[in-house]
Structure formats: C-alpha cells, structure tokens
Design a protein around this nucleic acid. Structure first.
Lengths: 115, 115
DNA sequence: CTGGATCCAAGTTGATACTG
DNA sequence: CAGTATCAACTTGGATCCAG
C-alpha cells in the first residue's frame, strides 16, 4: 500500500478523494503532523494534501490542532467519525485481498481480447 | 437511493465511477436490459451508461449478453466477482446509515463557520 | 434498441514559485 | 514549518446528433 508499484488504486472502492483513504490510515495510530503525512504519501504536493485535509476537516473526519510554540506545529487527528470509517475500509481491503487476482485476470483477458 | 434529492453521493465511499455502484445494485436481482437500466438511473445518457458498463465488463464485474432475434436485445448480468462487491457495498451502506447525520451536522457546522 | 462520434464544460491533480 | 497562489494538464460527465 502507498506504493506506486503495488497500485492500491486498482480496486474499484474509493474513500473520498485520491488521498483521503491513505491519510486516514496514516492517522490511524495517533495524530500526525503535516510534514509527517507527506513522508508515506510519496509525491503528494503540499497544496493537494492541504485540499484533502480541508475536505476531511469539513466533513468532521479529522481535526486540525495548531500548537503554539517557537516553531510552527500543526497536527491532524482522527475524530470518532473519521475513525468509524476504518470499519468499512477494512471490509474494502478484505475484498481487495480476496479478489484482486480475479480482477487482474479479467483485465488481462480484456486486454488480450482487445489485441 | 438513486434519488437526486436524497443524494447518496454524500457518502465518501464510492464504487467505481459515478454510476457503477448503482448499476451493480440494479443488477443485483437478475439480468437487466440496457434500457431497463436507464429507468432507475434517471438522467444517465446512453454514452455514459455504456462507458460505465464497458468498464465493469473489462474488470469482469458484469457480462454482456446479446440475444439474437428480430429486435435487438442486450442484457447485462453480474458475474460472481461483481456479486462479491455486494458485501463491501453493504458495509458501506451500513456506515452511511449509521453516520450520515453526523456527516451532515459536520458539514452544516463548517458552512456556518465559513459565514 | 443499443449504442458510437464529437464537442464541450467542469472538476481534479499536479508543478512551480512564493510567504508568514 | 505549513501552507498559498498561479497556471497547466488531464480526466469526467454530459449534450447532441448520428447509425446499424
């Protein structure tokens, strides 16, 4: 997961926008800072991550906490609502694990037919 | 569901493209013809429905069956793989039923804050 | 009846540069 | 550090007209 080579984007099931699902998983085990999120989410630009976080915030999935201090420090954390998404996400992952071979086979067959 | 007034598109969980999830539910109880599908899917144009069906077919979710006869008649049917999607879809629906009020409240609060 | 072809508006994602 | 501003590219969904 998160690996561009093992494209989790082959599954037909999506949560929110392109990065929302991954953001939620990154926050699963506690709050994370903006720049911490950018590590596992290779390639996401600041602007797009901000967009995704704002949308999640608007929908009550995450909360943004700004800590005062000498250096700037903003953390994002899952709300109970956001955390509740983990359940259907687990169902989606279970489906993907069980069926992604079938899906790949079907695509290959379709590609072969196209040739 | 399927009602533009009761927008099922408020949930962050999506299956395939815009119509894929609804198509699958329409096929849940047996094969349906192209034009039968267009009834519950109010407003879908032929082109877009075709696109969606082709994608589903390519991924092995549905099969297209062309019946020979005096008049043209094409039916679409779920494959076992397509049918297997009903399980995570049920999980998604359960989540939506349980949490859509929270989601709406969060959005309203955000909108109010924006004003 | 079941689409294909074309064109188009809108939304999404990203690259790059800049800021408090 | 945590974004914002701007612009370009790409993708989606739809309208409309046409065809086997």
């Amino acid at each position: 997961m998160f690996d561009p080579v093992c494209p989790s984007d082959l599954t037909p099931i999506r949560f929110g926008d392109k990065w929302a699902g991954m953001v939620i998983r990154c926050l699963e085990h506690g709050p994370r800072r903006f720049s911490e999120l950018r590590i596992p989410l290779r390639g996401v630009t600041a602007k797009v991550l901000t967009q995704s976080l704002r949308a999640l915030e608007r929908d009550g999935m995450v909360v943004r906490v700004e800590h005062s201090g000498p250096i700037r420090r903003v953390e994002y954390e899952l709300t109970p609502l956001g955390r509740s998404l983990l359940e259907p996400m687990a169902a989606a992952c279970a489906w993907a694990e069980e069926h992604w071979e079938e899906l790949l086979d079907a695509r290959e067959a379709a590609a072969a037919r196209a040739r």
